[in-house]
Simulated scan of single mutants.
Amino acid sequence: MALPILFWALTILCCTYGAVFGGRDGRMVAAIFIAGALLTIPAQILQESWNQVAWPVMIVDFAVLVGLYWVAMRTNRWWPLWVTGFHLIAMTSHLAVLVAPHFAARVYFGLATLWAVPMLLVILIGVARDRRFGITDHD
């Protein structure tokens, strides 16, 4: 129970900071991340087990990847590209299970969810560094 509370606290902290101080890119990445996290809840409910490919979660993750990629290719900042890269690593866990269907369920779940924390930290640190060095976008 403590992990979900910590995850949501970190999500709210980092995404709020990114949305308030990160300009257009921060708002877009924060919205995409929060939408993905919220949509993952019903997707995980639809998923009976992590012993096979979690198709509902994979679909949500793919949509998040497309959104993050779209932001990363239209910005002059480095941190959206890093957020996209970390999410791409998370997506490879789904592909690994497609290739090796006997992948351990706990490892699969861990790899699919682990990269959310570095993504959130990159949002926080990236926006803070942009502010420190006076990098702005054109809202």
Rank of each mutant, 00 (worst) to 15 (best):
T16S: 03
S93Y: 11
V99F: 07
I59E: 04
A100F: 06
E48D: 13
R27K: 15
A43V: 07
P80A: 04
A2I: 00
A35D: 10
L81G: 13
V97H: 15
A72T: 14
L13K: 01
V29E: 07
V57L: 15
D130H: 05
L68G: 02
M119Q: 13
T40H: 15
D61R: 04
W82R: 03
A128K: 07
A63Q: 06
A31D: 04
Y108F: 12
T136Q: 11
D137A: 08
W55G: 05
L88R: 04
W8E: 00
V20H: 01
I89Q: 05
G85A: 15
V83H: 09
F62G: 08
H87A: 06
G126F: 01
G134Q: 05
V29T: 11
L114K: 01
Q52R: 13
W115D: 05
L95M: 09
H94N: 07
W115P: 06
V66Y: 07
W55A: 15
C15S: 03
F62E: 02
W8S: 02
Q52L: 09
F109M: 15
Q52P: 01
M28R: 14
P80S: 04
A2H: 07
M58I: 05
T136E: 14
V117M: 07
A43G: 13
L88N: 04
G67L: 07
A19K: 04
A90D: 06
L120M: 05
V66W: 09
A128S: 05
A31Q: 08
V127G: 05
L3P: 08
D139M: 12
Y17C: 02
V53K: 09
G23D: 14
P42G: 11
A54Q: 12
I45P: 08
I32H: 03
